[in-house]
């Protein structure tokens, strides 16, 4: 009974954050802010929803744990790769951005000048 409640709580928690992450992707103004919302919310949302399924049905716990761990490990890496690629391919920051320290590094800028 108590496992049931915990499982459903985790699933709803995850579902709401997945929704909020998607909303952030629609609302935020530029690529990097969208990446922030997309990465953080979808990682925790998917993690807690998948673990919630594992708790509702304990026979599946091991495999759901592997899937959740995989998402937790790989999602930041893919977002990092996307952010770096979009900076190097010349996507501009939002016009109200405060500071851009990346210009000071030769590695970032060289591909922009081409």
């Amino acid at each position: 009974m108590i496992l049931n409640v915990i499982g459903w709580f985790l699933i709803y928690f995850g579902a709401v954050f997945l929704f909020l992450g998607a909303l952030g992707i629609v609302r935020f103004p530029d690529v990097y802010n969208r990446l922030q919302a997309g990465t953080k919310c979808t990682t925790l949302g998917a993690f807690s929803a998948i673990i919630g399924v594992g708790i509702l049905h304990p026979a599946w716990l091991a495999k759901t744990f592997i899937i959740a761990l995989f998402i937790l490990l790989t999602n930041p890496i893919s977002s990092h790769a996307l952010g770096r690629a979009s900076y190097r391919s010349g996507v501009k920051l939002w016009e109200k951005s405060v500071v851009d320290k990346c210009k000071e590094f030769a590695e970032c800028v060289e591909e922009r000048n081409e």
Binding site: L18, A22, G38, T42, A46, T64, I71, L82, S86
Partner: peptide, 15 residues
């Protein structure tokens, strides 16, 4: 970026 988030959400949906 949108497609990347969509795949993560879809994984949770599949489970």
């Amino acid at each position: 970026v949108a497609v990347d988030s969509m795949t993560t959400i879809t994984t949770a949906l599949l489970v």
